[in-house]
Amino acid sequence: MLTKRIIPCLDIKDGRTVKGVNFVQLRDAGDPVELAKIYSDEGADELVFLDITATVDKRKTLADLVTKVAKAINIPFTVGGGISTVEDVKVLLNAGADKISINSAAVKNPEIINQMAQEFGSQCVVVAIDTRNVDGLDFVHTHGGRKPTILQTQAWAKEVCERGAGEILLTSMDHDGTKAGFANEITAEISAMLSIPVIASGGAGNMEHFKDVFTVGKADAALAASIFHFKEIPIPSLKSYLHHQGIPSRI
């Protein structure tokens, strides 16, 4: 039976993990490779690396990091953040990334989704959508959720699917950081609308939230960062909990 995926997300700056990461067994708290290895050994189903490096000349660092991660771990991983051209994608896939994720670049130039899917296959193109509810309607936001667009989230999700995205990473900016649970309503709406998998992100605070996003939210995968980094929810406990709740899990 196909299982629901649990995906820790690591924020990367200049080749190092950012945000306090609270792992006692880490020799070097800023080393993404070591952290990736721990998550992989603990049973994470996939990993996402989000590069928040601001400057272009540091991009080389990211490719080097991707190579190190690919050599060290044996589960799939996605790399996102600042990717805007087919050439960017080529470099990262050749370095060993399994998938890339694009966000603002796709909003700016939707045709880039078609180009990337054609060149590398849909299976490695994840389109990240940051959504925020404004007066009862859901709108796509860019720049970390700060900048509103005129795109309605549901319509945009449908469009990126038609253009060849392989998966959607849906982050609710209303829920992100609240620890009050995932945005189940819009996640379910978009998941039911599309033929491709939806990864839910934003709002995870406890194990029940994961159960809810897989049942009520109809998500295919769930992504979280701080609750894993700070060991608030150890991955093995989460997997075991979900399994006992009747959610198909890889344990």
Binding site: M1, R5, Q123, G166, I196, A221
Partner: peptide, 13 residues
């Protein structure tokens, strides 16, 4: 599509 997405992506037994 509500039951089965295509592609088949993820861990299966």
């Amino acid at each position: 599509i509500n039951e089965f997405k295509v592609p088949h992506v993820g861990w299966n037994s």
